[in-house]
């Protein structure tokens, strides 16, 4: 009754076709079928945010979506934000400001932060903490994550101004 089906996704700008059972959680499709291993599985119970990706402009925990729901959707993961030779300002800021220790939460953190800064390019510390509340980090104590996001926001705003 639950045969595999073809699903069409756009992942980091690339159209892909995957064959999966509808019940497959999107995080597994990304990690195991598409080898996109940036988004992590921290809890698998919708709490930690390590699996966060952006889907049609929303931050979503990809452990809490079936691949069938994602059919036809546009998905961005940490791999779509920057590359080793062209880091996203958030990646650069996390590196500079010690926004990570073990790094396990970082892809989810940065992917969520990218959406937060899109919605609110100049957040206060309180707004950052509230907007990042769906992502858990067991290492940093959050202080440096907040600092990194603030620094990235300043950097991105300066770059925007310079371009205008």
């Amino acid at each position: 009754m639950s045969d595999k089906k073809h699903y069409k996704l756009t992942v980091n700008g690339q159209a892909v076709d995957v064959l999966a059972e509808p019940r497959e959680l999107l995080i597994y499709t990304l990690r195991e079928q598409l080898n996109i291993t940036g988004p992590h599985i921290g809890c698998e119970t919708s709490h930690c945010g390590a699996c966060t990706v952006t889907i049609d402009g929303k931050s979503v925990k990809s452990c809490t979506m079936f691949v069938a729901q994602a059919d036809g959707k546009d998905i961005t993961t940490i791999e779509g934000l920057g590359s080793p030779d062209g880091l996203h300002p958030l990646q650069e800021a996390f590196k500079e400001h010690h926004g990570l220790q073990c790094g396990y939460c970082t892809p989810g953190m940065i992917t969520r932060a990218s959406k937060l800064l899109e919605e609110n390019p100049n957040p206060t510390e309180e707004e950052i903490r509230f907007g990042m509340a769906g992502n858990i980090c067991r290492c940093t104590g959050y202080q440096n994550i907040v600092k990194s996001i603030k620094a990235a926001a300043a950097e991105m705003n300066a770059a925007k101004e310079a371009a205008e």
Binding site: S46, V60, K61, F130, G131, M132
Partner: peptide, 9 residues
């Protein structure tokens, strides 16, 4: 209610 990710869905 919940957290930002959950509230989008």
């Amino acid at each position: 209610i919940a957290d930002p990710q959950v509230r989008y869905m």
